[in-house]
Simulated assay, not measured.
Amino acid sequence: MPFLKVQDTIAITSSGGSFSLDVNASTEIYNITGAATMISNVTIAPLGTPVLGLTYVFNYKAVLDITTNSTSITIFGQTLTAAQALNSQVIECSYNGTSWDVDIQSSFDNSNIVSTSNIQNNAITSSKIAAGAISTSSLADDSISTVKLQDDAVTTSKIDDDAVTNDKLNTMTASSVKIGNASGTPTDLALGNGKIPMGNGTSITAVDKGATLVDSYDTLETIVSFEAGEVTAILELYLPYNCTIYKIKASVIKAIAGTDDGTITIVDNFLTTTIATMTIPASSALSTYVTATPNYAYEDISGINAGKISLTTNKTTPGGKVAITIITKRT
């Protein structure tokens, strides 16, 4: 048959306060009520000498904000969490002969009853989660953080094809790529105009795309003439990059006329600096070779196709042709 239990109410206001409950009182249930942003602490404690088995039951129905002003609610020595202070629960306090055992039973009507603080480490295993039980709509924004994932927990087999789309990735720096820095930390590497990522064995930096050709060798080839009507002609060659003019080789492809030597003067047109002067001996036969090693540092100061070098031949007695090979090393 139904029976009556003696009840009393503890109404809590923002001012908080201390509530002492007589251990000899006949009250069986205390209803804790109130809705406020607390500005002072609340303490509920027994008054008197308890006996073994003495039990208090509290129906906590209050909605109390203890976060805003860093206040607290303590019931028989047990301090409620911020979430507990805002939600309904039954609190049972039993005296064990030495101290009070406080049992907080949260209501399943509370939306946050399943919180991180209520779940022991490793309590939820794969076998306890049904296939398809956790969907995108079941996860709050930012709810899955790195600390909640074991190393190697997310493998390729656990990600559906096309599951990771652009809208699921954090915003990146404009015109950038994701890299691992020298510490192994993922970071964005911004790539400016004409820049490409380049690794040095420790980290990755953005370098000018032309830098990938540094220390590479190129050759320029042309023919210059000592023939009548062609001698003293100026031949211009474009060098649209910075380089060292490393070596120049002249190969006789038509015998050089006698009487006097032929000369080839090679000039940096921008700086009007002589790079090298080559002498082709008079009467040189086919396949005669002449080399020069100027190690001249050429700079394309005026921009692509604006810098150039010129080759000018000179010989009193016309006759003969040579093939010129210029070897450059990019800098």
Rank of each mutant, 00 (worst) to 15 (best):
I248T: 00
Y238R: 09
V224Q: 13
A233L: 08
E227V: 06
I266C: 02
G262M: 01
D215T: 06
Y241F: 06
I234Q: 14
T259S: 04
V231Y: 09
A257V: 12
D268Y: 10
Y246K: 05
D260P: 03
G229F: 12
K254L: 14
Y246T: 02
I223L: 07
V252W: 14
L213T: 12
C243P: 06
T212Q: 00
G229E: 10
E227N: 06
V252Q: 05
K247D: 06
I248W: 00
G258E: 08
L213M: 13
I253F: 06
K249V: 02
I245A: 05
A211H: 07
D261K: 04
I248Y: 01
G229T: 13
I245V: 04
L213N: 10
F270N: 14
L237G: 11
V267E: 11
A211S: 09
L213W: 11
T263S: 07
S251G: 06
G258D: 07
E221Q: 08
A250E: 04
C243L: 01
I248F: 02
D218W: 14
V214Y: 01
T263P: 08
D268H: 11
V267G: 04
T244G: 02
Y217V: 10
N242T: 12
A255L: 11
A228M: 13
G262W: 02
A250Y: 15
S216M: 15
V224A: 10
C243Q: 01
I266K: 01
E230A: 01
K249Y: 03
N242S: 13
A255G: 09
Y246I: 03
Y241H: 13
I234P: 11
E236P: 15
T244H: 03
K254V: 14
D215R: 09
A228P: 12
F226D: 02
D260A: 05
I253R: 05
Y246C: 02
Y238A: 13
L220C: 05
T212I: 15
T259L: 05
T222I: 05
A228N: 06
C243H: 00
E227P: 10
K247G: 07
V231W: 10
A211I: 09
D268K: 09
S216R: 15
A228W: 14
S225L: 14
I223F: 09
V252D: 03
T212E: 00
T259N: 05
L237H: 07
S216K: 15
Y217D: 04
N269L: 01
A233F: 10
F226E: 00
E236Y: 14
L239R: 03
V224K: 13
L237Y: 09
L237N: 08
